[in-house]
Lab assay of single mutants.
Amino acid sequence: DLSALRVEEVQNVINAMQKILECPICLELIKEPVSTKCDHIFCKFCMLKLLNQKKGPSQCPLCKNDITKRSLQESTRFSQLVEELLKIICAFQLDTGLEYANSYNFAKKENNSPEHLKDEVSIIQSMGYRNRAKRLLQSEPENPSLQETSLSVQLSNLGTVRTLRTKQRIQPQRTSVYIELGSDSSEDTVNKATYCSVGDQELLQITPQGTRDEISLDSAKKAACEFSETDVTNTEHHQPSNNDLNTTEKRAAERHPEKYQGSSVSNLHVEPCGTNTHASSLQHENSSLLLTKDRMNVEKAEF
């Protein structure tokens, strides 16, 4: 173990290094160091905050020279020094078990990766560091076993998940096959086929009936047209017969005018059967003409 005197000496050296690497504005270890034209180094955030307070150039807090945003430059070497100082402080805390008085939040800088452990060898070769390295080497064999167990647990979990997924996939297939086998029997399929065939026959029977009705309507229309044509021909046949009657009536009127007047009046009210309204109107006109002729003949006879 380190003596108290040596611990104090190391602590004083760390404090001196820390004062050199402090920012003059925030009085902390410089984060993202930036250098000016006057070779003074500050935190990048502190300098941008200072420049944004005034429009135009501002003055350096140490030498009062003008500073602009374009004049600022990043210093990589200074950032490396800060990183190495942080590593020294971490090693000091691990070796002594004491917390550094002016320690900052170094938890963000710590890294437990194997590459980081290899890099620590180049920091300080001390008894405390050696003991700590031995402890780490002793704890390393235990870690692979834990990793193997965790991997086995994960693989077993994956296997159970896969088996569950396969079961879920197989179950719908089985149910679907069961439904297909038990849903419709052979008799049901035959009945469905016969039902479809009967429906098709009914459709075939319905369509000819409609065509037959249309044919019957067409035949009825044709018969009505033929009947009207026969009526017209009958009226045409009746007209010459009426003319013959008129000639006979004229002759009778010349011989017996008194008797014919009474008979002509009675004939006005008689309509021949089986004739249309057109034929009756023609008869009325003929009878009126005959009456006028008879009157003329009677007057001539009187004179």
Rank of each mutant, 00 (worst) to 15 (best):
E83Y: 01
C90A: 13
N246S: 13
S3G: 08
I89K: 06
K55N: 13
R174V: 07
E148H: 00
D39T: 10
Y100L: 01
F92L: 01
S281V: 12
K69V: 13
K222T: 02
D188I: 07
N65Y: 05
P114H: 04
L203C: 01
Q283K: 09
D95Y: 00
R255G: 13
S156H: 08
L85A: 09
Q154N: 05
P257M: 03
E8F: 06
Q59K: 03
C273Q: 07
K31P: 05
T233Q: 13
L204A: 13
L203G: 14
I215Y: 15
I206F: 13
S216Q: 08
C38K: 01
L146G: 14
S152L: 08
F45S: 15
L204N: 06
K167R: 07
Q125G: 07
T96K: 00
L290V: 11
T68F: 00
L268R: 12
E254A: 12
L21N: 02
V7F: 04
R251S: 09
L137G: 05
L136P: 12
R77E: 13
P141R: 11
A279R: 13
L62I: 00
L27A: 01
N105K: 12
F45D: 15
R70E: 11
P33A: 05
C63I: 00
L164T: 12
E9D: 04
R70L: 14
R162Y: 04
M17L: 04
Q59T: 02
Q18Y: 14
V7Q: 08
K250C: 05
Q80S: 13
K49Y: 04
C63D: 01
A301G: 15
K87Q: 11
D39C: 03
Q261N: 12
C90R: 10
G182E: 02
R6C: 02
L203S: 15
L268Y: 01
R6S: 05
S103R: 08
I30G: 02
L204I: 07
D39A: 07
K118Q: 05
G199F: 02
S126F: 09
N131S: 07
S216V: 08
L164S: 13
L158G: 09
I41P: 01
T68S: 08
D213A: 12
K118G: 13
E254D: 01
G274L: 12
N143V: 09
T230I: 02
T277Y: 06
E74G: 04
R132F: 13
S186C: 15
Q154R: 07
S150T: 10
R6I: 04
T211S: 07
S150Y: 06
R162E: 13
P144M: 04
E83F: 04
F78W: 05
L158Q: 14
I30H: 07
T36Y: 00
L21A: 08
L158N: 09
I20H: 15
N243S: 09
C43G: 01
I124P: 11
N52V: 02
V198C: 05
E110A: 03
K192A: 08
V153G: 08
V190F: 05
E142S: 09
E120G: 12
L85H: 05
I20E: 15
D294E: 03
D218V: 06
S3Q: 06
L204Y: 09
S139L: 14
N234L: 02
F78V: 15
S156P: 14
T247Y: 14
N15W: 11
L85M: 12
H256Q: 12
A223G: 06
A16L: 04
K108L: 12
K54Y: 11
L151T: 13
R6K: 11
S241N: 02
Q154C: 07
V265Y: 08
F42M: 01
H284P: 02
D188E: 12
G210I: 11
C46G: 00
L155F: 12
S35Y: 13
G159C: 11
E22T: 04
N52Q: 11
L289C: 12
S280E: 15
S71F: 04
R130G: 05
I41S: 01
N246I: 08
Q261G: 15
S228G: 03
Q261F: 13
P144G: 11
E22R: 03
V153C: 13
S122A: 14
V7Y: 01
T247E: 07
S241G: 06
K49L: 02
Q209N: 01
H40S: 01
E258H: 10
A107K: 12
K259S: 05
G274C: 12
S185Y: 07
L164P: 10
L146T: 15
T96I: 09
N267T: 04
I124L: 06
R162T: 08
D95L: 00
L137K: 12
K69S: 10
V153A: 08
G262L: 08
F78R: 00
S35T: 11
L146C: 11
E83K: 03
V34W: 03
S263L: 04
L158E: 14
V161I: 11
H256L: 10
K222D: 14
M127E: 10
V34N: 01
T277I: 08
K221M: 09
Y260Q: 07
I124F: 07
Q53F: 07
L94E: 12
S35M: 13
L27I: 01
S75V: 15
P114R: 11
A101S: 10
I206N: 01
V7M: 03
L5R: 13
F78C: 13
T68P: 05
E271L: 05
C273R: 14
Q80L: 12
L86F: 04
F106N: 07
D218E: 11
D188Y: 02
V34H: 04
I89Y: 00
L203Q: 11
T149Q: 06
N131V: 10
M127C: 04
R77C: 01
T163C: 08
K19P: 00
P114T: 06
A4P: 09
L62M: 12
S186Q: 13
S197V: 00
S197C: 00
N157E: 14
G97D: 04
K54E: 06
A223H: 06
T160G: 11
G210P: 06
I41G: 03
Q261K: 07
K31E: 09
A107L: 09
G262A: 09
M17A: 01
E271D: 02
T275F: 12
L204H: 06
V82Q: 06
L146M: 10
R130H: 13
A223C: 10
L48E: 08
N157H: 10
E148I: 05
T233C: 03
Q205L: 04
F45T: 15
K300E: 11
S139G: 11
S156T: 10
C90T: 14
F92A: 00
G262D: 13
D231C: 14
Y260H: 11
Q239L: 04
C46V: 00
I25W: 00
L155E: 09
L51Y: 05
H40I: 00
L51P: 02
K221I: 15
E84I: 04
S266Q: 03
F106P: 12
C43P: 01
Q80G: 04
V298R: 02
T36K: 00
P57R: 08
P144L: 10
V232Q: 07
P144F: 07
T207F: 07
V153I: 07
V270Y: 03
K192L: 01
V153K: 07
E202K: 04
C38E: 01
S280I: 08
R165Q: 08
K221P: 07
S266P: 02
T230L: 06
L137N: 09
N52H: 13
E8I: 12
I67A: 02
E258L: 11
E8C: 02
N143S: 11
L136I: 08
I89S: 04
V298Q: 14
Q147F: 04
N191F: 02
R130V: 11
K108N: 03
V34E: 01
L27P: 01
D244Y: 06
G56T: 13
F106K: 07
R255A: 06
T211L: 05
E226T: 09
